[in-house]
Nucleic acid binder design. Structure first.
Lengths: 197, 197
DNA sequence: TAACCTATCTAACGAGCGTTAGAAAATGCA
DNA sequence: TGCATTTTCTAACGCTCGTTAGATAGGTTA
């Protein structure tokens, strides 16, 4: 039994792992559009083509599933941004590349959908909540290393600048139709032009 | 009966009206911290010091109550901003005054608490949803009149600039502790300094 | 084929939800 | 005081929720 379990975990390509990813994906879509509480286990199971009881073979609880989605969301953005900045020398262009990757990851509707929800469900286990916060902090620290290189006025608080930057970006999914006339990347470029001068 | 009803409606100071405002206030607090679905009618009633059934004397349904809170939220911000800009000539200073009023209204925790939630519950009645959207549009049009006066580069799309501005502001309640060391007004002033040059 | 693990389904549980009808209490007016 | 109106409470309704135990089908290995 050990051999099989380890094999599946290592390759992450077993039937169970694929099903788990599928559930994660449809759950991300539902959580993103309807919110955590308004999405029922039965909703998710139906969208995944199974009965609600079967979900519990893959996830221990609804909260467990939500945490996995939240975790994957931050990871998706983190990886997109991390992959976008190497090889770029100019600090402002580094930040612009990071911002475009960030926004495109948020608006990407093929496959797993990122949860932007800033409000964690208010009954989350302390330890789990701390883990999510730590993951988000890790992302913000990466952004900070990019912002640190920017030639900004001394009087400007870079923590506030980071929140300004993140606020403008994270608000985009609220108003921007990813299939609309203006490409998300162009929106980001105007943001950067405004922040830059 | 007509006389009494009209009187109450006109003065808006009857016992019923006061109770209605009280329910609205505690509901705004709960909706803001826990979200719509996670807040039960019994939660709200308990916080208002009554039984859950009594709530239905003042509001026809939970959705009805939510709409009233959402409506009052936009009104509170609208009135705060509307009251902050007259008498200021310089366009940038007008926008800064609007932004400070906007943020202070969002962070104000005495009495009614503003709902910033961008996501309307996804089963809202069409007509009601349209009414809320229209009210929000009215606010955005007011902001647009201020933004229109700004001496911005021709290449800059003012609709995108408005969303940049609103995104940065609306994100503040996510990360800013209103009782923290940095005054919200100072945060806004740095935002404006960044947007300005 | 037989035994075993994997994955899913069935069917129900207790709890909490929004909501309601009608009784009861508080209030204002004659 | 007595009456009518306004406001609140009581007690339940039907429904959906997250979750679980046990039966069942499919796949793999011996």
């Amino acid at each position: 039994m050990d051999g099989t379990a380890q094999k599946i975990e290592r390759e992450d390509a077993g039937r169970a792992a694929a099903r788990r990813r599928q559930v994660l994906t449809v759950a991300s879509e539902l959580f993103a559009t309807k919110g955590f509480e308004a999405t029922s286990i039965r909703d998710i199971a139906t969208a995944a083509g199974m009965m609600s009881g079967s979900l519990y073979y893959h996830f221990a609880s609804k909260e467990d599933l939500y945490i996995a989605v939240q975790d994957a969301s931050i990871s998706k953005i983190f990886n997109a941004v991390e992959g976008a900045i190497p090889g770029i020398a100019d600090p402002w262009e580094r930040l612009e590349a990071a911002a475009i990757a960030h926004v495109e990851a948020m608006l990407d509707r093929s496959g797993f959908r990122v949860l932007v929800t800033p409000l964690f469900p208010p009954g989350l286990d302390r330890k789990v909540r701390d883990a999510l916060v730590a993951q988000r902090d890790r992302f913000e620290r990466m952004i900070d290393t990019v912002i640190a290189e920017l030639p900004l006025p001394k009087s400007l608080d870079r923590r506030i600048f980071r929140q300004h930057y993140l606020g403008a970006l994270n608000w985009i999914p609220v108003w921007c139709d990813p299939d609309g006339p203006v490409a998300p990347a162009d929106i980001v470029r105007q943001f950067m032009a405004t922040l830059r001068r």
